[in-house]
Design a protein around this nucleic acid. Structure first.
Length: 452
DNA sequence: TCTGGGGTCCTAGGACCC
DNA sequence: TCTGGGGTCCTAGGACCC
């Protein structure tokens, strides 16, 4: 905890849904749900209009559809989200070099490291509103909530209180008093399991947490958790803002439409996922020593198996082969029904040290595998709700719906206002997906707006 | 047709080494 | 040969976050 309110937390409001409403004028002011639109999907983001119906993140999609059948259900355009995210992060980096992104739509900023020296309420108010305004400008209208406080905890708490489209500053000296009455769930890191344990001790609020004896906390939660939890209960939080946290793992996983039970069905998936992970690994320029295969069974239990190689690898063949071998080691679980399969890599190094005998062992394994099936590529049947498309003569639009060999498109963009709807055969050659261009480097944040 | 996908961090036990 | 202790690496599982 610092003596100044020098940490800012910025959070885009209903980010994915807001990007969709920005780019699809006919959806503005309407309930929009982004997530897995197929049978077993869940809600990723619901617009504020959709939240009024009781729809929220992580909710099963079928439940959301029941609550609000008339919402727009979109599968998401991550290219567009990534572009907007980079624009926002670039805005923040103009404030300070110490920007710690937590996800596409959230980041901490260390204002003191950015040379801010005036932490008076009036100055912070102006700074916060300037940032929010700049974010709105560079993203074409996305709103962000900002919180400013003397620690990460307080900055985050403040931005939550500011939602949506607001700014809250927590004045130094008021922190502990402000959180006393809150539920322990308000403390970052306290989830359902920890809250349940605390409840067994009769602890529901932060104030009650303070009153707990160190001994009983330690017994119930373990030494480490007890320690940081007690500190946060008094708003003591010294975590710094870190601009360059390195990636620790890369993984791919997929939930199947129906549970799978046969090795012959799962092996090609493990091999393909291994290759996908390897590709992302190479793109990042790293090599990995540990490969992990994750299975989620029909009963939702998760089983993982990992292997650490003597050397670091990055090739499709090696990672796919080890993934398949790890899958085979869990063969006894298959009969219970496999709901999800995932492949991940970790233990990164900067250079390859492929140990020869391991590779040959892996290749031997792989030789018994049916060739990895190429990534499924839908020529024309792949239109998903919300995707950007371009028609030869009608121009840019988005997929409103698809089925029965037809695709319905609404022709509108962020710049046009609500547009007309037309339906085409899915294989109409005049209609094609719009390529997504994600810039490699950060987008310019616009003209220097801090130097006035 | 209950419950995604991408991550991070922590715990606990065993192997192994000094 | 009746019993140490610390440190690191690896594995499996779990909690949590967006």
């Amino acid at each position: 905890m610092r003596s100044d309110a020098s940490i800012l937390h910025l959070d885009l409001d209903a980010f994915f849904a807001a990007v969709e409403q920005r780019d699809k004028p006919s959806l503005r002011g309407k309930p929009v749900v982004v997530g897995g639109v197929s049978g077993r999907g869940v809600v990723s983001t619901a617009s504020y209009e959709a939240r009024k119906f009781g729809i929220h993140s992580a909710q099963p999609m079928h439940e959301a559809r029941r609550l609000c059948p008339n919402a727009a259900y979109l599968s998401g355009r991550f290219g567009a989200y990534r572009i907007a995210s980079r624009q926002v992060m670039a805005v923040l980096r103009r404030l300070s070099p110490l920007v710690e992104p937590l996800s596409l739509d959230e980041a901490y900023v260390d204002l003191a490291a950015g040379g801010v020296t005036d932490f008076s309420p009036a100055a912070l108010q102006k700074l916060g509103e300037d940032v929010r305004g700049r974010v709105r400008a560079v993203t074409g209208g996305l709103t962000a909530s900002a919180g400013i406080g003397s620690s990460k905890f307080m900055a985050k708490l403040a931005s939550e209180a500011a939602k949506p489209d607001g700014l809250v500053i927590i004045a130094p000296g008021t922190e502990a008093g402000r959180i006393a009455g809150l539920s322990v769930r308000a403390i970052p890191g306290v989830g359902p399991a920890t809250a349940e344990r605390l409840q067994r001790l009769g602890i529901h609020t932060v104030a009650e947490l303070r009153a707990a004896t160190p001994n009983e906390l330690r017994r119930e939660l373990g030494q480490l958790t007890a320690t940081w939890l007690s500190a946060l209960a008094y708003a003591e939080d010294d975590r710094g803002v870190s601009a360059d946290r390195e990636m620790k793992s890369i993984s791919v996983e997929e939930t199947f439409a129906v549970d799978l039970t046969r090795l012959a069905e799962l092996e090609p998936v493990a091999a393909r996922d291994g290759a996908v992970v390897a590709g992302r690994l190479r793109k990042s320029g790293a090599f990995a020593r540990t490969i992990t295969v994750k299975l989620r069974l029909a009963d939702f239990t998760i089983h993982t198996r990992s292997r650490t190689l003597l050397g670091a690898v990055d090739s499709d063949e090696t990672i796919a082969a080890v993934a398949v071998a790890l899958l085979r080691e869990q063969q006894h679980l298959l009969a219970q029904g496999i709901r999800l399969l995932g492949v991940g890599v970790s233990g990164f190094t900067n250079e390859a040290q492929e140990a020869l005998f391991e590779v040959s062992a892996a290749r031997r394994d792989e030789s018994r595998v049916t060739a990895p099936t190429p990534t499924v590529r839908h020529a024309h049947a792949g239109y998903r709700a919300g995707d950007d498309v371009t028609h030869e003569t009608l121009g840019p639009g988005w997929v409103w719906g698809t089925g029965l060999g037809l695709v319905t498109v609404r022709f509108e963009t962020a710049a046009t206002g609500p547009g007309p709807v037309r339906t085409f055969p899915v294989d109409d050659p005049a209609l094609r997906p719009t390529p997504v261009l994600v810039p490699d480097e950060d987008e310019a944040a616009g003209p220097g707006w801090l130097e006035e």
